[in-house]
């Protein structure tokens, strides 16, 4: 079938508006051992004589759900579908694309202009559509490299920055010659990146041997660790941390010479707790060409015998309890919360 390419019809749809097509997509993906993912909003569809034979989905700049009907294979439909999807993504403003695939499909996607970033052996590979993406990021990091016997790394979301974060950074900095601090850049948290970054910058002032880095798409981003940002919805089931951690081990740590990664213990949040547990495995175990990075857990600091957490601060903010917030955050954070995020009280008058 499909000898004549002219008969292939391509379309781009926002799947939420087309339940009938959504059912067709579910069926096609099912034939290929895939299921439709909820975050995927845009689909490129390919039809032959009205029948759906191929599709590719986009969740922002992440390509997912690429499938070709097994009966229609061998006709190079896949290359047409991926071409179409690349152009659609470009029109939507997504030039830097990421893609998850099983390692046995690497060579196909390599033929579509995708380059592997990291492979979880036997399970999944993360690819991007540029040959210089992770490489130029690593090069830009390497310019900030500073030598030392113990070089630490911390990644924080700081949503918002608390005295707990301050304590963690202080403790870590005291334990190493240089400490690289990254702020998660993805704008998927309650506080926007710009505010979180400014609060961290102000909040860590005076701590020696510290290099503050903006976050990137290669670190706890929607692309490397999408399930993290669903934690408030409590979807932790198969949250997949290995890709994110292996990028850290194989690209980021070597660029900066990081030997230790510091992290606070996590008593409250299951996603973060699992991330910490997985961190020890993926950063330390003998499973990568890159040298291991030692994981150091630092006990959370407490206020009134309760560990300080950013989620508690958000809860108190919603309750407008600034007296208690003041005990948990540095003055810089308190000031921003009071001026920018305080919910206007309804006046009694």
């Amino acid at each position: 079938m499909a000898e004549d390419c002219e008969e292939l019809v391509f379309d781009t749809i926002e799947v939420a508006f087309f339940p009938r097509i959504r059912n067709e997509l579910v069926e096609l993906l099912g034939k290929c051992g895939l299921s439709i993912e909820e975050g995927v909003d845009t689909f490129v569809t390919c039809r032959f004589e009205g029948r759906l034979v191929g599709c590719a989905g986009l969740e922002a700049n992440i390509v997912k759900c690429v499938a070709i009907d097994p009966l229609a294979r061998g006709e190079c439909i896949s290359l047409k579908v991926v071409s179409e999807m690349i152009h659609v993504a470009h029109d939507l403003g997504h030039d830097h694309l990421f893609l998850y695939t099983r390692p046995n499909n690497i060579s196909f996607f390599a033929g579509c202009g995708f380059y592997p970033i990291v492979e979880v052996p036997g399970l999944v590979t993360l690819m991007e559509n540029t040959p210089i993406g992770i490489r130029s990021y690593s090069r830009s990091l390497a310019r900030l490299r500073r030598d030392g016997a113990t070089v630490g790394g911390i990644v924080i979301n700081a949503n918002p920055f608390t005295l707990g974060h301050r304590y963690l950074v202080e403790q870590a900095a005291a334990g190493c010659d240089v400490l690289h601090l990254f702020v998660v850049a993805e704008d998927a948290s309650y506080f926007p990146y710009r505010d979180r970054f400014d609060l961290v910058r102000e909040g860590v002032e005076g701590i020696p041997n510290l290099v503050l880095h903006p976050g990137s798409e290669y670190m706890i981003s929607r692309a490397t660790f999408s399930s993290y940002f669903f934690k408030e919805k409590n979807v932790v089931g198969d949250c997949f941390t290995a890709v994110d951690l292996l990028i850290f081990r194989e690209h980021i740590a070597p660029a900066l010479g990081i030997t230790h990664r510091f992290v606070g213990t996590e008593p409250f949040c299951r996603t973060t707790n699992k991330y910490n547990a997985d961190m020890k495995y993926w950063l330390q175990a003998d499973l990568s060409g890159a040298p291991p990075v030692q994981v150091v857990e630092i006990e959370r600091t407490e206020y009134g015998a309760v560990p300080i957490s950013a989620s508690e601060v958000r809860r108190l903010l919603a309750a407008d309890d600034f007296d208690r917030i003041a005990n948990l955050v540095p003055p810089t954070t308190l000031q921003l919360l009071a001026t920018k995020y305080r919910t206007p009280r309804v006046s009694a008058a």
Binding site: C76, L79, K80, V82, S83, H87, H90, D95, G111, C112
Partner: peptide, 9 residues
């Protein structure tokens, strides 16, 4: 950033 062409044979 701009694109041109396809991945077809």
């Amino acid at each position: 950033e701009a694109l041109a062409g396809t991945l077809e044979s």
